[in-house]
Amino acid sequence: MATANTLERIFSVDYKSKIQPIVSLCIGGWGLENLSEPNEVTIDNSTGNIYVADSGNNCVKVFDCDGKIMFKFGDKEGKGKMYRPIGLAICRDRILISQSRNCILNYQVNGEFVSSIGKLGKGELEFINPLGLTFDESNGEVYICDYNDNRIQILSQELTYKAQFGQDNLHSPLDVKLTKEYIYILDGSNPCFHLYDYNLILHKSVISREHKLQVFIPFFFFIDNSNNILIITDYYSIAFLNSQLELIHRIPITQPNGVTVDNRGRVIVVCDGGEHHLNIF
């Protein structure tokens, strides 16, 4: 049974009260403390550290819970070399990173390179522009959005190929998250949400432009399992949805990309709106 992204220490978060960021760092540029074209953001729940895929700087930046830079990683040469990292997923002591060179990089959370998985193609362990990815924390399996192959690939805990699904229904999958009941996939072409069960059978699809959620240009999303809230980065806002996929709150913000929630109930967003912000609400 999947338990990924569960926030065990969150019991109730008043998301509607989140209007202005309590921390907003405008750190665009190319130095250690700067971000350039940031994509996904995720939290190491054991430490509270914030990991950002710094695409323009070809590395991952690690900040503490208050937004202070700690270190960066991404080998300059060899198999661990990063090129425009996009998606991030942390499980225990390792972090997986999707990147524009059509492979997945496997690192320790301390920045030590372990292995590279996959190559360009349409077969098993082959990718064309992999984007969002997530762990099933109950068994260590990995779900990867293979964007231009229009599918989800599942890897084992050992990062070997296990299965794939979605070719009949997906058209440019952007991000994937897990709950106890369903595999949620954000598809960029409509855009829409697809909900699959763990037998990899499509349960339902919700097209946003025909639905109350009204999300138009999404990228990443996060599921707070404790409250059944979906948080989606849209082109000019962050949209908060309830378990019925109904819009309950929206924060105007320019070009948000990655979004996550920490164990204190703070919503953390990185933006690529020309100023490359790290925002904490």
Results as ranks from 00 to 15, higher is better:
L133A: 08
H203W: 07
C192S: 15
L213H: 10
E137Q: 12
N228H: 12
M82I: 15
Y184D: 05
I90A: 03
S17Y: 07
H276N: 15
Y196M: 08
L213N: 12
P218D: 01
G48F: 04
V109A: 05
F281V: 08
H276K: 15
M70S: 13
E137Y: 09
V206R: 07
H194L: 14
F240Y: 15
S226E: 13
Y15S: 01
N106K: 13
V41L: 05
V62D: 00
H249K: 05
I152T: 01
G166Q: 03
E126W: 09
E33F: 11
V109Y: 04
F220S: 05
N169C: 13
N45I: 10
S55P: 02
V52Q: 01
I248E: 08
I207R: 14
I86D: 09
V259C: 08
K68R: 13
I280R: 01
E33K: 13
L32H: 14
N225V: 10
I154V: 15
V259F: 03
V52E: 00
R101G: 07
L155Q: 00
S205Q: 15
S115P: 04
R266K: 13
V23Q: 01
E137F: 10
Q214P: 05
S17H: 11
K177F: 05
G265N: 06
I43H: 02
D75S: 12
E112F: 10
N34T: 02
G188I: 05
N49M: 07
R266N: 14
K162Q: 14
F135E: 00
Y235L: 11
A89S: 11
H211R: 10
T6K: 13
S208G: 09
E37D: 10
P256K: 04
F219M: 10
E8S: 15
F11V: 14
Y15G: 00
V206P: 03
L200Y: 15
I22N: 11
E275N: 12
D44L: 05
K177Y: 07
L133H: 08
A2D: 07
I27G: 00
T254A: 12
D149H: 10
T233Y: 03
M1H: 14
R151M: 05
Q167L: 14
L7A: 06
N279C: 13
Y182I: 07
G67F: 04
I117T: 09
E8G: 07
V142L: 06
I253S: 03
N57M: 03
N139V: 10
L170Q: 01
Y161Q: 08
N257I: 08
N5F: 06
W30I: 10
F11H: 15
V13E: 06
M70P: 04
N227G: 14
G121D: 05
I128Q: 09
L155D: 00
V60G: 00
D14G: 09
L202D: 02
A53S: 14
K162A: 12
K122V: 13
R151P: 00
A53C: 09
A239P: 04
C192R: 15
R151H: 03
K18A: 12
C145L: 04
N227H: 12
I128W: 09
C59N: 15
K76L: 14
V60A: 02
L32N: 14
A4W: 05
F11R: 14
R84M: 11
N129Q: 14
I27F: 01
V206N: 06
V13Y: 03
D175G: 02
N58T: 04
V261Q: 00
N148V: 07
E137S: 14
T6A: 11
E33P: 02
N57H: 03
G48C: 07
